[in-house]
Amino acid sequence: MITTVSPTDTGTALLSARGLRKSFTLDGQDVEVLHGVDLTIAEGEFVTVMGASGSGKSTLLHSLSGMDPVDAGTVRLDDVELTALSPDELADHRREHMGFVFQQPTLLRDLGLLENIVLTSSLDRVGTPADRVARAKELMTRAGIWDLRARMPAQVSGGQLQRAGICRALMRRPRIVFGDEPTGALNRDSAEQILALLAELNREGTTMLVVTHDVRVAARADRVVFMIDGRIADELTLDDRGPVAGPARVDAVIARMRRLGI
């Protein structure tokens, strides 16, 4: 069954944004991309953000994760106001509490897959080196890439790279994982594998915020947020999540998109 609910109705708020505004300078003119966005994500929730190109969905993700500073508004993760932190504090926060999966593989070219995955844990010396490898092994085995651990990024396929990226994002058991078109650069089979992995992780309790163009990806979520011209235009809650997106969920997302003219 499909219903629409207000964001604050679901569980304990983990991440909340109020009145986010963000502008870019284009050809000498300031162009506002986010016009005062409000968004709350509950603990354990899987939220996807959809919208046409240029609607501001990636900017929203960058603003929520603290990668780009905002011009106005606040972002809170748990009790911490991210928008009030210094760049260094923000970096610490990203390292300890957030995970990222990008569209293009963003592994460091000069490190092997395993080294890439344990990178931030090594930086903070989380546990012993053996602990870190054990944790990475657990994740990489699940992702089916443990055998490739010694390979360099240029030596594996796009899907394998993306799985390594997800392992890296989950290495430190983050409170929330941000995904920016995580299957955008993959073929259908690889995309399916990645989606299955993300869904599985979410069922185990990992909160997710994923920006996507792909209806099949959106249909996996608990809630879909639609953006138009830098504003949240509508939301759709899907409550019968399954391992594979049911046709009804996909149809519901498409119907809502049609209605919104996306």
Partner: peptide, 10 residues
């Protein structure tokens, strides 16, 4: 850029 995104301090 990747390192900074992952939370490396400058």
């Amino acid at each position: 850029g990747v390192m900074r995104a992952l939370g490396f301090r400058d």
